[in-house]
Design a protein around this nucleic acid. Structure first.
Lengths: 136, 136
DNA sequence: TATTACCCTACTAATTTAATAGAGTTTTCA
DNA sequence: TGAAAACTCTATTAAATTAGTAGGGTAATA
């Protein structure tokens, strides 16, 4: 399952990408329009700022804004930051690799074999979609 | 993340598919060879029996065995039974569909748009893999 | 300089997962 | 026919994760 954090984060990014101009958008506006708990959204936007997707401006007229154009924002990067590993098992993860305690031979493992394909197919989808591609 | 239930269930199925003959295999043997808690495995095999993947034989010389050949067992079906929905959000699920409370327009939703592609790509992987394909 | 809005920490309720425990039932083979 | 072997079922629980909630602090702008 996709976590709410990822879902809300994606929606917020999409909302920012749909803005006409590049003026900062307040958390409260995004929260209201996208039906997200404001406090929860706050923490999500904060993490997107810390990972370089968003910039913020404080004070009156402040808010969040995209640091790059929607075309430059890859879903692969967004998913890794919001959801974490793209792989469903650590032993096939590129960025979060861990071996299994129970598995004596990774290459012979049927779960490994299947999940490697699932990972690659998901990566392919994320790779070919930018933020631009998923807004209407 | 893939649940342990699914991981263990897949390993057990693969173990049964690797048997030379069709004689029932005891839970204890699978649990030991695949490093799985026997009691936990018991409940997993039970659900695989109830969903028509496995047959069981009680008493001395009993155990579990595949009801179909490995070639006939599709990963799509196995994943649906063990892991549940293949989609990462209910609103793109074929077999477990639910609409989102928060989302006014499903077709316009960027999360929906992305997750639909992810679901289709995962389904394609599961579709083209049978139990035969993932054993060594 | 007051207001607005971001920033941060800590806590918590709910849910899910991954078992664990233990008793009960059925079947088979000697 | 009876006892061992093996499946079946229910209930409980510990740990982890998720999805928030609460509340105060800090910085910037008009």
């Amino acid at each position: 399952m996709l976590s709410k954090k990822t879902k809300y984060g994606l929606k917020a990014l999409a909302y920012l990408a749909s803005q006409k101009d590049k003026k900062p958008v307040q958390i409260s506006e995004i929260a209201e329009k996208e039906n997200i708990s404001q406090k929860f959204l706050e923490s999500i936007l904060l993490s997107l700022r810390k990972t370089g997707f968003l910039g913020s401006k404080k004070g009156k007229g402040g808010g969040y804004y995209l640091l790059k154009t929607p075309e430059e924002i890859s879903m692969t990067d967004v998913m890794r930051v919001l959801e974490g590993p793209i792989a469903m098992v650590p032993c096939v993860s590129l960025n979060f690799y861990e071996s299994c305690d129970d598995c004596p031979d990774e290459q012979a493992c049927s779960v490994h074999k299947l999940m490697l394909q699932v990972r690659d197919s998901a990566l392919e989808v994320y790779r070919k979609n930018t933020l631009r591609d998923i807004i209407s």
